[in-house]
Simulated assay, not measured.
Amino acid sequence: MKIGVLALQGAFREHAAVLRRLGAEVVEVRLPEQLDGLDGLVIPGGESTTMMRLMGLYGLDDAIRDFDAPIFGTCAGMIVLDRERLGLIDVGVERNAFGRQVASFEAPLAIDGEEKPFTGVFIRAPWIVDAGPEVAILAEVEGHPVLARQGRILVASFHPELTDDTRVHERFLELVREEQGVRA
């Protein structure tokens, strides 16, 4: 399985390390042609405005819109994928919804389909303010959606790459396997 990690800015190295630990071949994506042949793409946390500017500068915004494999966006990656920016998932997102950097926190998350709580790491994290009818909300914090899926798109407002728990990345890789089966 060949997974790209958008490597313009943000926590891309941490995602790459988790994916490699799970047996995926990882490609750091900085140019549109690097999306060719990938089975999935991760858009990491970072600073969403900077990421959008850089994606526009390198032509990655349109290339990612045209990318037809699964995509997993975390924190700023969730913002980038929302309906106001790339428009790949039907959610509205509030940036820095939980507060500034000093308000960063960890919280146990009850993730749909998981028996054990997952520790979510929230750093200047967004939350979903509204979701279209095709969006499945998979986890919430204090009533605010923080993990969601619509078709081949998975988004999290937290940073699963900053924990030793690989279940959210495993869920993404399972989505990639499902899509590979559909395409075959």
Results as ranks from 00 to 15, higher is better:
residue 74 T to P: 07
residue 107 A to R: 15
residue 150 Q to A: 05
residue 79 I to D: 10
residue 147 L to K: 07
residue 100 R to S: 15
residue 165 D to S: 12
residue 145 P to S: 15
residue 78 M to N: 06
residue 182 V to D: 00
residue 67 F to C: 01
residue 118 F to C: 07
residue 99 G to S: 11
residue 110 A to K: 15
residue 98 F to W: 10
residue 79 I to T: 11
residue 69 A to V: 02
residue 169 H to Y: 09
residue 104 S to C: 13
residue 77 G to H: 08
residue 89 I to V: 14
residue 122 F to S: 10
residue 136 A to G: 00
residue 69 A to E: 04
residue 156 A to W: 02
residue 169 H to M: 12
residue 99 G to D: 10
residue 129 V to C: 03
residue 125 A to V: 10
residue 68 D to T: 11
residue 129 V to P: 01
residue 173 L to Y: 10
residue 161 E to T: 02
residue 160 P to Q: 09
residue 95 R to L: 04
residue 77 G to S: 03
residue 94 E to Y: 05
residue 155 V to T: 11
residue 172 F to R: 02
residue 123 I to A: 03
residue 183 R to N: 13
residue 114 E to Q: 11
residue 89 I to A: 01
residue 153 I to D: 00
residue 126 P to S: 07
residue 82 D to H: 05
residue 157 S to I: 01
residue 91 V to T: 05
residue 109 L to N: 00
residue 135 V to K: 04
residue 141 V to I: 15
residue 94 E to W: 03
residue 120 G to H: 08
residue 175 L to W: 05
residue 138 L to Y: 12
residue 134 E to V: 01
residue 75 C to N: 04
residue 143 G to I: 12
residue 70 P to M: 11
residue 179 E to K: 11
residue 162 L to A: 07
residue 137 I to Q: 06
residue 88 L to N: 04
residue 78 M to D: 01
residue 139 A to S: 13
residue 126 P to T: 05
residue 80 V to R: 03
residue 75 C to Q: 03
residue 111 I to P: 05
residue 114 E to S: 03
residue 114 E to R: 06
residue 109 L to D: 04
residue 170 E to D: 09
residue 154 L to C: 08
residue 157 S to N: 06
residue 115 E to W: 11
residue 146 V to D: 02
residue 176 V to K: 04
residue 96 N to K: 11
residue 167 R to A: 08
residue 178 E to G: 01
residue 154 L to N: 06
residue 75 C to I: 07
residue 161 E to I: 06
residue 153 I to G: 01
residue 139 A to D: 08
residue 124 R to P: 04
residue 152 R to T: 10
residue 115 E to P: 08
residue 104 S to A: 15
residue 151 G to L: 10
residue 94 E to A: 15
residue 91 V to P: 02
residue 155 V to G: 05
residue 181 G to W: 12
residue 112 D to A: 14
residue 115 E to G: 14
residue 107 A to V: 12
residue 171 R to V: 09
residue 104 S to D: 12
residue 181 G to V: 13
residue 163 T to M: 08
residue 180 Q to V: 13
residue 166 T to D: 15
residue 178 E to M: 08
residue 121 V to H: 09
residue 157 S to C: 05
residue 71 I to M: 09
residue 72 F to G: 02
residue 181 G to Q: 15
residue 159 H to A: 06
residue 78 M to R: 07
residue 117 P to T: 07
residue 69 A to T: 04
residue 130 D to G: 09
residue 95 R to C: 04
residue 150 Q to M: 09
residue 83 R to V: 13
residue 114 E to L: 14
residue 135 V to I: 10
residue 102 V to N: 11
residue 136 A to I: 06
residue 131 A to L: 06
residue 146 V to N: 08
residue 72 F to D: 02
residue 151 G to M: 08
residue 162 L to M: 14
residue 179 E to L: 00
residue 95 R to P: 08
residue 84 E to S: 13
residue 157 S to A: 15
residue 159 H to P: 05
residue 182 V to P: 00
residue 96 N to I: 06
residue 81 L to H: 00
residue 125 A to T: 09
residue 126 P to W: 03
residue 179 E to F: 00
residue 106 E to N: 12
residue 162 L to P: 03
residue 116 K to M: 11
residue 102 V to W: 14
residue 89 I to M: 02
residue 142 E to Y: 11
residue 138 L to E: 15
